[in-house]
Nucleic acid binder design. Structure first.
Lengths: 337, 337
DNA sequence: TTTGCGCATTAAAACGATTAAGCATATATT
DNA sequence: AATATATGCTTAATCGTTTTAATGCGCAAA
């Protein structure tokens, strides 16, 4: 039941000229197109009076471009991604772009659906956190020659842009920190996943252990994404009951893993860091309030978002350059190890 | 540099019919519009082969409707709003709607800008968390007869829909809980704001205090939104140094106030609940890990989001009914009081 | 007088879909 | 045989904008 908005034609009729002139004035081309000085004034006045606002949809159809970016994250309710979304939003709005967000829940089915929906809506480009098995939906974008930048992780085979954390060094450094602190039985809790960011985090941990002659002590638990609580509770319980190899330090490979793990550690009353040292992933207010504030790997989430937008804008402006950006993490030292 | 997508005309040309027939088949009107059986098959086949996807922009221009909802929150990085956004997204996608999100940073200037941007993009409806002084931008929407639902708070004068927490009872009950627990010098920390949700939270506190004969003990500190840390630190410091009236319990009126307050309480080493009892607002993982898990007012954020979408869809389908929904909060009891 | 040029403006096509109206042709009804 | 009805398809307008090509007009140069 919307009221009809004022159109270019309404202005043209009121002033008594063709729509072309109004369009020229609207787009500041009155000089190049030699619109008469008095007519310009009359058109401006009419626009003002009738409160004219151009219709972006019509413009989009004409231009074949919508000034819209599609952002696909795994879950916008996840603070890491909502914070990134905010930075992306700010950076995009600066250049007149609007952002449409969708959550894939880490499934390729939902990713596919989102890609299709957003492609049909003619977004000009994508920023995507690719889910597992998402090669197809991404190649669909790439085949259509729609610019795309992957963030947080990337699909190794695909020739495309990405902005990710240097996950290997992040994990290597965190592990090395634990080793240097004197911990020997250092465990890693990771997601069971072939996604590159996870593999790199695992690799960083392994290489650090090997570098210090601790290959025998390598101990990794893989958590199923859809059974986060069940799986992680088992892991922590085993550690608490000393069944498991006398683990004296744990490194959590993500935000959600850290939180789920800490809940169980807390409820079992395991003493941090005396019984168990901890390093988490991604800053988080909850880390600060844990009785032993949690040491964690901090990602430059603002840079990640902004850089992704910059690269995407570049691509949408026709650049053919493929960018691979690796951002450095920072280990924030606290009391948990 | 996008590859040209297949259009209706391309299909029509390939099959050798007019675009009308293709459109009929596309929209499942082959029966009503009596399209020949063999032609239907040929068109279907061509669509499949050429991987045809309808252009939503063209459709939008024709229909005057974009199947898009504009969501304006104060900050998508705020977990309360990102969680709500997620529920809104899910509910909207179910009905084929896409969501565009914008953050107003609690300023009317940014709200205005967002409303204008989204109106130009012809969104079919709005879900808005109105910022202070946002009467104008909202009335702009309402004048244009674009459906809108306010969430979290509403603008009292405006005749429009809203879905909010029953802030009065939430605050009344929380305060009453503190009183019943035997606390006498109960303080309220609120934002300095004329927004209705804040006024209702203040009123709930005041009425509860009065109801128990504690009107003399009413003690409220108003925090400036843009000076959150400075202002709240002063308040907590004063309490810590006992300068301030022997406050023995604090009720924080929002999410962000609670967190900022807890940081300072933590850093000053004030003992909760022995020296100071606490009730916070909105569930939060950090509340769980505070050494004395924080009692808090839980909002039904999922219901709020979903209900807002339902009402909005109803309005977009032509309903003239004005809905005012008040959702009940729940007081989650923990150790902080 | 014709040609050319600068100036101001318009007509019309285009973007990709939807849809009312119209046009043949074949079949059924009187 | 004349008329009505059903069938299958096309034409063209429409949504609101942009933009190319065309047009008309006055004035100076030839």
């Amino acid at each position: 039941m919307k009221k009809k908005r004022v159109s270019l034609k309404d202005i043209a009729d009121k002033v008594g000229v063709s729509t072309a002139l109004v369009s020229y004035v609207l787009n500041g081309q009155e000089k190049e197109k030699r619109v008469g000085a008095e007519v310009v004034i009359k058109i401006r006045k009419a626009m003002e009076e009738m409160n004219y606002k151009p219709n972006f949809i019509a413009r989009s159809l004409r231009y074949g471009t919508t000034q819209t970016i599609g952002l696909i994250v795994t879950d916008i309710a996840n603070p890491f991604f909502s914070t990134m979304a905010r930075h992306i939003e700010d950076e995009a709005y600066k250049s007149g772009y609007t952002v449409i967000i969708g959550s894939s829940d880490e499934t390729s089915a939902k990713s596919d659906l989102l890609v299709e929906t957003l492609l049909n809506r003619q977004v000009d480009g994508f920023i995507v956190v690719p889910a597992e098995g998402c090669e197809d939906c991404l190649s669909q974008i790439i085949e259509d020659k729609v610019p795309v930048v992957m963030v947080d992780r990337y699909v190794p085979g695909l020739v495309s842009n990405h902005v990710v954390l240097d996950n290997y060094s992040a994990s290597y450094n965190a592990t090395m920190h634990l080793i240097n602190k004197g911990y020997k039985n250092i465990g890693l809790v990771a997601y069971k996943s072939y996604l590159i960011h996870m593999r790199e985090r695992v690799r960083g941990y392994e290489e650090a252990m090997k570098a210090k002659g601790l290959e025998k002590q390598i101990w990794i638990k893989y958590i199923r994404f859809n059974h986060l609580k069940t799986d992680i509770n088992k892991v922590i319980e085993a550690i608490g009951s000393k069944e498991d190899n006398n683990i004296d330090a744990l490194f959590f490979a993500t935000n959600t893993l850290s939180m789920a793990g800490l809940y169980k550690i807390h409820s079992l009353g395991i003493k941090v860091p005396d019984e168990l040292a901890i390093i988490g992933f991604d800053g988080n207010e909850a880390f600060d309030f844990f009785y032993a504030p949690i040491t964690y790997v901090k990602q430059p989430v603002d840079e990640m978002g902004k850089e992704a937008v910059r690269i995407l804008l570049d691509q949408m402006n026709g650049s053919k350059k493929i960018s691979h950006v690796n951002l450095m993490s920072q280990l924030i030292l606290r009391n948990s190890c």
